Computed example of a mutant assay.
Amino acid sequence: MYEYNLDYIKEITGISAEEAKSLAKYLSKLPVKVLIETYKMQTDYARQNRDKLKKEYMPEYYFAMHLLALKAMKRTESASAIKQELTQHEAERLHKIRTERIKAGRGKKESKKALLVKEKYFDEIKKLYFEDSLSWREISEYLAKYHKVKISHGYIQQKFHEAAMYAEQK
């Protein structure tokens, strides 16, 4: 079913299958705007390397061009870590990649308790607060007693309001 010419990819890129897997892993961790930049770079590489295009291997060709773009981006991003000389263009691209990573909020995961309040027990908390008129402290006791989850009343209130505001914005 999947009969692709991996030798052709290696021939035009010099990238082994193992390095391709590593680049795919790198790709999966990039923020959306940087992902778009990799596809823009792929297009540029495809235009620059038209002489290497074999029509019978179009998927392999564009995959190879994307690998080249990822390799260039990864090199740019890691160049300062290994003290390589960067061109002005590469330095600007590195700055943009880094700021996009920060903007994407990588590493900012909700805590387990926040997810419980915002997702699993949100409707139940809403009912307890608005319909049953329980205080936040009583809701905390309810969750501890009936769901075996210990969450402070202040945290429940904070995360509940965040989830409610998000739901209103939708």
Results as ranks from 00 to 15, higher is better:
1 M>E: 01
4 Y>L: 13
5 N>W: 04
6 L>W: 13
8 Y>R: 01
13 T>N: 01
13 T>E: 03
14 G>A: 04
18 E>G: 06
21 K>F: 10
29 K>D: 06
31 P>H: 03
31 P>I: 06
34 V>K: 00
36 I>E: 08
40 K>F: 12
42 Q>E: 06
44 D>I: 15
46 A>R: 00
48 Q>N: 00
49 N>Y: 12
50 R>W: 01
51 D>N: 15
59 P>N: 08
63 F>A: 01
70 L>I: 02
71 K>F: 02
72 A>C: 08
72 A>Q: 12
75 R>C: 00
78 S>K: 15
79 A>G: 14
79 A>R: 10
81 A>C: 07
86 L>P: 05
86 L>C: 03
89 H>K: 08
90 E>M: 10
90 E>H: 07
92 E>M: 07
93 R>Q: 01
95 H>K: 08
95 H>W: 11
97 I>D: 00
104 A>D: 09
105 G>T: 11
111 S>K: 13
111 S>A: 13
112 K>P: 11
117 V>G: 03
120 K>R: 12
121 Y>M: 14
126 K>T: 04
127 K>P: 04
137 R>Y: 11
139 I>L: 02
146 Y>Q: 10
150 K>G: 04
152 S>I: 04
154 G>N: 14
155 Y>F: 13
157 Q>G: 00
159 K>D: 05
161 H>S: 08
163 A>R: 15
165 M>Q: 01
169 Q>S: 13
